[in-house]
Design a protein around this nucleic acid. Structure first.
Lengths: 186, 186
DNA sequence: CGGTATCGCTACCGGTGGTAGCGTAATTGG
DNA sequence: CCAATTACGCTACCACCGGTAGCGATACCG
């Protein structure tokens, strides 16, 4: 079994532990200057790292943002949640995350970059969406296509509101969204 | 009354009727090269027009795309539709429009530009969203905030699917969306 | 005609994602 | 201590993009 094995030591200088600093710098820069304003130069400067180092670790700006979102969101908080409450919990969690500074704008930005960049779309789908989709399938026992539709509805609705108004969705509307989804999928 | 008055002739050379050519060139360029690839230079070249002429008529790329979408969509086809069927008709119409070549990508692109550009957000909200929102309020008799939530759900869901998969939503999923919304708002 | 406003064109600006190459620092194995 | 190896910071660079300035030419009104 390979599980649990410590990887063999490689020769050469080891990579510095800069990921946490880079992710924090990315989110705060996106928060302050928006997705387009958060340039790779600025992110590198805010993280105290050379721009070339960023490109040694991530193949593109979109890939960096995707990893940053993955780190910021963490696993879906569905531990011990009863099946009846899984969808409501997921919706309120996503709404709260998208409301955090920088997260929503980063999400929307990497999203549109993906519309015409198949490589980025693959990264986004595989690294970011798939884990949550699988967790939801396990928790709900619903087939894949229904879970995918659920994700489209929840994330799409919340991002559309953010893009149109510049502000995250208020609680009353999130509750209405929860009720609608509950009646249809529940 | 001012209605029906022919505007007083202005001195100077009149504007050439290039809007139709520009809109057609914009959509086809976005379709071929994506939102980011559809540069103002390329759109101008495809329309047979100088780039500076575009900037004389539209203040930014986002504003041009917004007007282009407004022209491509036209008024919502809700004439003579019974109140029960207004939402279903609107959803299927939006789904079909977003599936047309270039329209979905243009929509998603101008959208993310708007997240951090308040001027563009105002244009998008006033010129594109408001007419359809008002038409829906009239047809449905629902309050503004509920119609706005409806628009977020429909447009957001369809755009999220497009961004994530690169393909418009298939009919079966559109039907599921219609059913869900019908039970909640109906 | 003269006045006026638009058009096409060229040239330009600051900035952006992304790359190449260099010297240097950090680690492993002998 | 000495090679080999890998990552780092830095500078320079590239093609390209949104947007602007200024020019002469053109089309209309009175």
């Amino acid at each position: 079994m390979l599980r649990g094995m410590t990887p063999a030591k490689q020769p050469g200088r080891p990579r510095a532990g800069i990921d946490a600093a880079v992710f924090a710098a990315t989110l705060s820069t996106v928060h302050e200057l928006g997705y387009a304003g958060a340039t790779m130069d600025r992110i590198a400067a805010a993280a105290g790292v050379a721009k070339t180092t960023l490109y040694r670790r991530w193949p593109s700006k979109g890939a960096l943002i995707t990893d940053c979102l993955l780190d910021a969101l963490g696993p879906a908080p569905l531990e011990g949640v009863g099946r009846e409450e899984v969808m409501a919990t997921a919706i309120r969690w996503v709404a709260a995350e998208i409301g955090k500074p920088g997260v929503g704008a980063a999400f929307a930005g990497v999203f549109v970059d993906a519309v015409n960049d198949p490589a980025l779309r693959a990264i986004l789908s595989t690294r970011l969406q798939d884990p949550y989709r699988i967790a939801l399938q396990d928790a709900l026992g619903e087939p894949e296509n229904r879970v995918l539709l659920f994700i489209d509805i929840v994330v799409g609705t919340l991002l559309h509101r953010l893009g149109m108004t510049g502000e995250p969705m208020v609680d009353a509307d999130v509750t209405a969204l929860v009720e609608m989804v509950r009646h249809h999928f529940g």
